[in-house]
Design a protein around this nucleic acid. Structure first.
Lengths: 107, 107
DNA sequence: TCCTCATTTCGCGTAATCACGAAATATGGA
DNA sequence: TCCATATTTCGTGATTACGCGAAATGAGGA
């Protein structure tokens, strides 16, 4: 994870529709969801949806796999993890004590 | 954390200079860093810096505290934590097994 | 091969974002 | 009070992102 990848990823998430799409894919799980179904659930025009999925894919936040006629989209949670690590890298100059309790793990 | 807050936060991080500023503040720690020092370290014009700090503050990613003549900026890591939780909310439809190993905690 | 469904690419008008100079405001010292 | 330092606000021109209709492409099935 470097600066420019992180910017692409944050930029991809910084949009109402794309954030909805990503969260939907997270909830749907790793098996993937057909693009068309995403569009139907969120009421999106095909070209608009396609553009947003492409943006998310370019940013490494989702992956696409063709399954017969459909394209299944699934989230890449490793990228989310990479973003967090990048953000908190060398937190408090490496001083564990100063950092403790500032960002408790999601669990 | 709701959708529109998350969008503001991701949007704030989706910018080269702002991402640098935020990471710098994370590394500097919770005691805070004077705005001017941030500007000097990253070579930013005062008005540009001020605008970016305001954006980060509006997004809840940093907090500002006046200390005599200077304004100290410190990161709010709870917001980062909130963003991650929001992103991964109801991951895999709540199926722990399907979700396991997809996003190992940063630690 | 021909047709249809699923998805992507292109093009355009509109709207939001950016950097930065200049001016305004806040704070404490002489 | 007057001034210097630290920071914010305002205005402007240039770049970039958005939604979406129309057309193109890809992948089976008849």
């Amino acid at each position: 994870m470097d600066q420019s990848y992180a910017i692409d990823a944050f930029g991809a998430l910084a949009h109402d529709t794309r954030l909805q799409i990503f969260r939907l894919l997270v909830q749907r799980g790793p098996a993937g969801t057909p693009a068309m179904e995403v569009g139907r659930l969120l009421d999106l025009k095909p070209s608009t949806l396609s553009g947003h999925l492409a943006t998310l894919k370019r940013a490494g936040l989702v992956q696409a796999e063709r399954q017969h006629r459909e394209v299944l989209y699934a989230p890449r949670l490793q990228t989310v993890n990479g973003l967090v690590r990048f953000l908190l890298e060398d937190c408090c100059g490496g001083d564990e004590a100063a950092c403790a309790g500032l960002a408790p793990p999601p669990a």
